[in-house]
């Protein structure tokens, strides 16, 4: 029973990270209807930046917030420079640009920071909170960070004019322009926020899985699974889905299929949700006939 609780709890900790990735995906999906395949590599790259800052001697939290800021600005820049020209291009074009980005981030991360596996510090070392056999300080801290991010985003979208404008732009770009919203900047901001959330997720997961250029691949896959499970057009559903797949992954891994097939579990989840319930648990039903 204790072991089971431990699995559930660490599942919640990684689930929080999946939830963040899922939320980042939804953020871009809602406004552009594109799935950003480079989300994981962007997050990894940001985490490398944080690592470099910490190595240079910056205090952890300075590096943390600097990285979030870099992610925000970098994400916006990518949207403005690389994605705006193909905004109205076919899906395939966009998918290829995303794959191009994935490859570029992955290889430049390896190029600049090399491929050796690096330890990444946790801001919540053992003893920060009450460690027990069920959960470590880092797990508690990481869940708290995830929840903080979620609350901050909720407040931003619910109560600020800019957040309202972003929701409006995602939903009805034409009307949004007619009330004076600069829609393409809202898309850029969405990218920026997604990149920043990804950066936080990367920094929270790196102490657990260690840092290397391919660190986020599997995590992104679980992010996808979570987003799809909850409904890729529903941010809160995606967050919920992220936590669910996190717990599912840990419990299944510990008791049913072992840890070697974790990615396969994600694959099965993704294909399963897509074929059986493409709208996810809380998604809107969009009917298209072909």
């Amino acid at each position: 029973m204790e072991a089971f609780l431990h699995q559930v709890f660490s599942g919640l900790a990684t689930g929080g990270i999946y939830a963040s990735m899922a939320l980042a995906l939804v953020m871009i999906y809602q406004s552009t209807h594109h799935i950003n395949f480079s989300q994981g590599e962007m997050a990894t790259f940001c985490t490398f930046i944080a690592w470099a800052l910490i190595e240079t001697g910056f205090p952890y939290w300075v590096a943390f917030f600097a990285t979030v800021a870099i992610g925000l600005v970098g994400g916006m820049a990518i949207q403005r420079i690389l994605l705006r020209p193909v905004e109205n291009a076919p899906i395939l074009t966009n998918v290829i640009v995303f794959i191009g980005l994935l490859v570029i981030f992955n290889s430049t991360a390896g190029w600049i920071f090399d491929h050796t596996i690096k330890a990444f510090p946790s801001p919540f070392p053992r003893g920060t909170f009450f460690d027990t056999q069920y959960f470590s300080s880092h797990e508690i801290g990481s869940i708290m960070v995830t929840l903080l991010v979620l609350v901050a985003l909720y407040v931003f979208f619910r109560f600020t004019p800019l957040g309202l404008a972003m929701r409006a732009a995602a939903q009805n770009p034409v009307s949004s322009r007619l009330v004076g919203i600069r829609v393409s900047w809202m898309l850029a901001l969405g990218w920026g926020l997604a990149a920043a959330i990804g950066a936080i997720a990367g920094m929270m997961v790196a102490p657990i899985v260690y840092l290397d250029p391919n660190m986020m691949a599997g995590i992104l896959l679980y992010g996808f699974a979570g987003a799809l499970l909850g409904g890729i057009d529903n941010p809160w559903g995606a967050v919920f889905g992220g936590f669910v797949v996190g717990v599912l992954e840990n419990v299944l891994g510990a008791y049913v299929i072992g840890t070697e097939l974790k990615l396969t579990v994600a694959l099965v989840l993704i294909v399963g949700v897509l074929t059986l319930k493409p709208t996810g648990l809380f998604g809107k039903v969009v009917v298209t006939r072909v």
Partner: peptide, 25 residues
């Protein structure tokens, strides 16, 4: 049943999972 992005996503997942399946004990 999957169009555009969703098919890309499913196949992306397939690609990521392949080495792991091949290594399965």
């Amino acid at each position: 049943r999957l169009q555009g992005h969703y098919l890309a996503l499913a196949t992306f997942a397939l690609a990521l999972a392949t080495p792991q399946i091949l290594k399965y004990k």
